[in-house]
Amino acid sequence: METKPRWLTVLDVLTAIFFVVAVFLVFVFAPMERTMGLVQKVFYFHVATAWVGMLGFMVAAVAGILYLIKGDRQYDTLGLAAVEISLVFFFVAIIMGSVWARPIWNTWWTWDPRLTTATIVELIYAAYIMLRQGIEDPDRRARFGAVYAILGFLSVPLTFISIRLLRTIHPVVIGSGDPSAEGAFNMSPRMKVAFFYSLFTFSVVFVDLLLHRLRMGKLAARVEELRLKVSA
């Protein structure tokens, strides 16, 4: 933990390269969509950031289950790291979606299922962080965090279904649902390349960030331990 391992530096460089290529693909390589104009390009990173958000939520729930079974504090560090990264990425995804919606749906905000569910997930993350901040004892904090991450993860599908039953205008680009949804479009081959490559790149970005955040989490755990020892 003292020094950064070499393979992590290698991963950092790789991630940076992947990312630059993704930016090139989205900005230059992918064609401009004709009915929406340039703003359609927001879509690539919007979906990719949202994907990372969901990925992190899933990792946090799995880490929660593993912590409760094994009681190893490392899983708690992993859960917190995943939630924090997802909090940031989901926030970006929501804002980017909102920016896209303004010219296309003519409004910054609609109570569409995905948008609303994403916001509720964001609130669950925030509640998770607040819960942890209110508890001093590290073991109890880890247990409560794990339980809350699992509960949150299980409630999200039901939340999504219940809001969806209310009505939607969100375009379903992959696995097409309602073709009348405004802002839906068919992806050309080049768009598909940019889209799937962005998803791939952001998965790598997620792993890389997670590893760094984990290192920080371990350091924080050691500081906390020492602080208790010194003050005792």
Partner: peptide
């Protein structure tokens, strides 16, 4: 094609 360049810039 509508000019949505500004929104593109804001988004990114």
């Amino acid at each position: 094609t509508p000019d949505t360049f500004n929104y593109f810039v804001v988004g990114y």
